[in-house]
Amino acid sequence: MTEAAAVFRETRADPVTASVPFSHLSLELGHLYMEDFAEGAERLERHFAAVRPWAETARAWAAALPTGNRPRISTCFLIDDYFSRLSTPAELVPTLLGAAERAGLTIDYLARESGCALADPARPDRSGLAESVMHRLVESPPPGGNGFRPPVSRTGWLANGRRAPASRTSAALAADGAWQPPAETGARGHSVFVDVELWDEDGGHRTWSCAFLAAVWQLARLGLLRDDGRAVLVPTPWEQDAFPEEWDALPPLLRLNPSAPPFTAYYTCSVLPGRFLPVEHAVRVVLEQVHVDADAVAQAVERSGREGLPAPEGVADRTSYLFPPGL
């Protein structure tokens, strides 16, 4: 009979993964640049008028839940305050909310794109949200890859397959020195190769790309982001009548509707202008190569299964898009 060995571990060595509430669907009613807002209220009204019938289509999908339960659908809108700031929250947000209301739509949650990039002001010791996601990237090794190209953490570029060789002089790249085309990993028939720029740098300042911030945004909506186990980008209730003059005075994610279903959801659907199609393709490339918190994934899979709407473990498989004409 052997004596059992005692194993001691610090509590902080295994942080508990915080649980988050889930809606069935997170419905994004738009993502516009500051240039779009500069065109005025009429531009916003045209946007929401075009979005409304497609938003109703997404709601119809969620209404057909197998369990017959009332669907929990939360709406959100992402404002670009990261790449430019041509207006103030005090001027822009009321105009935005008014245009949505006149179209018969309600924005439950309002997010700032800079909130997907920057560090939490309450935790200055932590890295920014985008940087923390970058450290979780695990590049899919392309068939025949030889490690010639530096990792994404150094280059800032992420691909969905094998790039065309940069040099014809290496025998490891091509025995006969001939040009080779890029190839998508797991392509069905023909390749659709994508190489995504995640950031660029100028004078030591890093600017995250729209595609990478949109990937962070999707992970946040799916409830898969954690920092030492705690949930991040948690909605802040907004009960004030006026909005501030400075964007940095506005929390990164606001809950505008007190009775709204949860911000995080098993599935996401985004109604976007067609010009975002290449960006969202790049988003899927990123999502397919992010190592998310396993416990966070397990929570969503287990709970969605109990509700009769099982969510797949693949993050990209939980995202969907609508690109209406004329948006």
Results as ranks from 00 to 15, higher is better:
52 R>F: 07
319 T>Q: 12
285 V>W: 00
5 A>R: 10
122 A>N: 07
243 F>R: 13
124 P>G: 10
165 P>I: 09
72 R>A: 14
235 P>A: 07
248 D>L: 09
310 P>F: 09
100 A>H: 01
64 A>H: 08
300 A>H: 02
264 T>I: 02
223 G>Q: 02
147 G>L: 09
85 R>Q: 14
198 L>Y: 06
193 F>W: 01
45 E>T: 15
174 A>S: 13
93 V>I: 12
311 A>Q: 06
169 T>N: 05
29 L>Q: 00
152 V>E: 02
98 G>K: 06
108 D>I: 00
79 I>M: 13
104 G>Y: 02
241 D>Y: 01
274 G>V: 09
242 A>F: 08
40 G>T: 11
98 G>M: 13
37 F>D: 06
232 V>D: 08
20 V>D: 02
17 T>F: 11
106 T>C: 06
295 D>C: 11
291 H>F: 09
231 A>V: 01
30 G>M: 09
89 P>C: 01
96 L>P: 14
101 E>R: 12
165 P>G: 09
138 V>F: 00
128 G>M: 08
287 L>N: 05
181 P>R: 11
177 G>P: 03
305 G>R: 04
48 F>W: 00
230 R>M: 15
26 S>H: 12
295 D>Q: 11
173 L>F: 03
220 A>W: 05
83 F>R: 15
116 C>V: 10
34 M>P: 02
69 N>T: 14
1 M>R: 15
42 E>F: 06
203 G>Y: 01
127 S>G: 14
326 G>H: 04
209 S>C: 00
230 R>E: 14
80 D>P: 10
273 P>G: 15
322 L>D: 09
125 D>P: 01
260 A>G: 00
248 D>K: 14
79 I>A: 08
11 T>Q: 03
195 D>K: 09
17 T>M: 12
243 F>G: 10
298 A>H: 06
169 T>G: 00
196 V>W: 01
308 G>E: 03
101 E>Y: 03
187 A>M: 07
319 T>N: 12
208 W>N: 03
188 R>W: 05
130 A>F: 03
13 A>F: 06
233 L>Q: 05
261 P>T: 02
78 L>A: 05
62 A>G: 09
29 L>S: 05
115 G>N: 06
317 D>Y: 00
132 S>P: 04
234 V>C: 07
262 P>Q: 10
80 D>G: 07
52 R>G: 08
234 V>H: 02
112 R>F: 02
